[in-house]
């Protein structure tokens, strides 16, 4: 029972990471109906930026927040410079551009930092925490905590601030948004910035457990896709819930059923399964296409 609980908890911890990346994907999807295949690599690259600063002697938390800011700017720039020209292009062109970005960030990281793995520090204590009879890794607890704080902040931002409202409006109905004076183009860029910032946090939270290397995020991105699809790719709350569900499921299946070697195949089955059986996910809106 103890082991089981620990597995569940470990699942929640990684699930939080999936939830964050899934949320970043959903934010971009909602606004533009594009899936950002480069989301994971941008997160990975941001984590390297944090590593550089920490390696140069900067304390953890300033490096953490500075990285978030840099990732935000990076996201905005990518949208403005690279994604903007293909906004109206066919799906294939958009996918190719995103894959191009994925490849560029991956190779840049390999070029600058080499492919050898690096140790990334955790801001949380090394000793495990006692809760009753159970031992929990402080980093896992901390990561879950950080994820929850990020989610709460985002919720408050979208729910209670005029800018958050404008971003939601721009994602839903760009034409009407322009008619009330919202600069829709900038809202999209802002969405990209936020998504990149969330990704950076996810990267910095996962790096201490999986170690930092240029391919760190590829599996995580896959789980985030699965999470977003399970929750409904146009539903931020669903994506978060999906992330935690996928994390726990992955850990339990890995520990008791299929073993650790087929975890990615599990994501594949989940993705194809959800897409075929219920493309709108558990909590998504069902779309009807007019012909």
């Amino acid at each position: 029972m103890d082991a089981f609980l620990n597995q569940v908890f470990a699942g929640l911890a990684t699930g939080g990471i999936y939830a964050s990346v899934a949320l970043a994907l959903v934010m971009i999807y909602q606004a533009t109906h594009q899936v950002n295949f480069a989301q994971g690599e941008i997160a990975m690259f941001s984590t390297y930026i944090a590593w550089t600063m920490i390696d140069a002697g900067m304390p953890y938390w300033p490096a953490f927040f500075l990285t978030i800011a840099i990732a935000f700017v990076l996201g905005v720039l990518i949208e403005r410079v690279i994604v903007r020209p293909v906004e109206q292009a066919p799906v294939l062109s958009v996918v190719v551009v995103f894959i191009g970005l994925l490849v560029i960030f991956n190779s840049l990281a390999g070029w600058i930092y080499t492919y050898t793995i690096k140790v990334f520090p955790s801001p949380f204590p090394k000793e495990p925490l006692h809760v009753g009879d159970h031992f929990f890794s402080a980093h896992q607890l901390g990561a879950v905590g950080v994820t929850l704080v990020v989610l709460a902040l985002l919720y408050a931002f979208f729910r209670y601030t005029p800018l958050g409202l404008a971003m939601r409006a721009a994602a839903q109905n760009p034409t009407s948004s322009r008619l009330v004076g919202i600069r829709v183009g900038w809202m999209l860029a802002l969405g990209w910035g936020l998504a990149a910032a969330i990704g950076a946090i996810a990267g910095m939270m996962v790096a201490p457990t999986v170690y930092l290397d240029p391919n760190m995020m590829s599996g995580i991105l896959l789980y985030a896709f699965a999470a977003a699809l399970v929750g409904g790719i146009d539903n931020p709350g669903g994506a978060v819930l999906g992330g935690f569900m996928v994390g726990v499921l992955e850990n339990l299946l890995g520990a008791y059923v299929i073993g650790n070697e087929l975890k990615l195949a599990f994501a594949l089955v989940l993705i194809v399964g959800v897409l075929v059986v219920r493309p709108s996910g558990l909590f998504g809106r069902v779309h009807v296409t007019r012909v």
Binding site: H33, Q34, V35, F37, V91, L92, V95, S218, G219, L222, F225, A226, L229, G259, E261, L262, K263, L264, A265, A267, L268, I271, V272, L275, V276, P279
Partner: peptide
Amino acid sequence: LPALRLEGLYLALATFALGVSMPQLLKYK
């Protein structure tokens, strides 16, 4: 066959997942 029901982006997602998970399947004990 399942891909029939998937359009554009979703098919890209499903095939991306296939591509990422392939090496792991080949290593399966």
